[in-house]
């Protein structure tokens, strides 16, 4: 987030933080509950990662203010994401 905020804008943020907190709590309970179902490994991984990505996105978008952040920060993150994916996939590419 950049620049100055009015008091009313900050109060609006606080209302959103409360909702995000509730959503994160609910998603945590959900991901634990889902783990008790005996899904196949592929489905279990997909569901767990989907919930984790949703939770991570909420934290980044609202708590880290990415939703209203400047382009340069998004640029840094896009580059980081590219190299992060490369790190994850490079070993498996090497083994082929």
């Amino acid at each position: 987030m950049s620049g100055h905020l009015s008091e009313e804008a900050v109060k609006q943020h606080v209302r959103i933080y409360r909702r995000v907190f509730l959503a994160l709590g609910a998603l945590t309970v959900l991901t634990v509950a889902v783990s008790y179902f005996h899904f196949s490994v592929a489905v279990a991984v997909a569901v767990a990662l989907f919930i984790a990505v949703t939770k991570g996105s909420l934290v980044a978008a609202y708590f880290m203010h990415l939703k209203t952040e400047r382009k340069i920060v998004w640029g840094i993150l896009a580059m980081t994401f590219f190299f992060f994916v490369f790190l994850l996939t490079a070993p498996s590419l090497h083994h082929r």
Binding site: M1, T31, A48, K55, V59, A60, F63
Partner: peptide
């Protein structure tokens, strides 16, 4: 705000560590 960005990142890492290590 900057200290918060770091703290939220630490939270974010745990959000991924938790299912990967504990649930899968």
């Amino acid at each position: 705000e900057c200290a918060g960005l770091y703290w939220h990142f630490v939270d974010l890492v745990w959000i991924f560590l938790f299912p990967i290590l504990y649930l899968l």
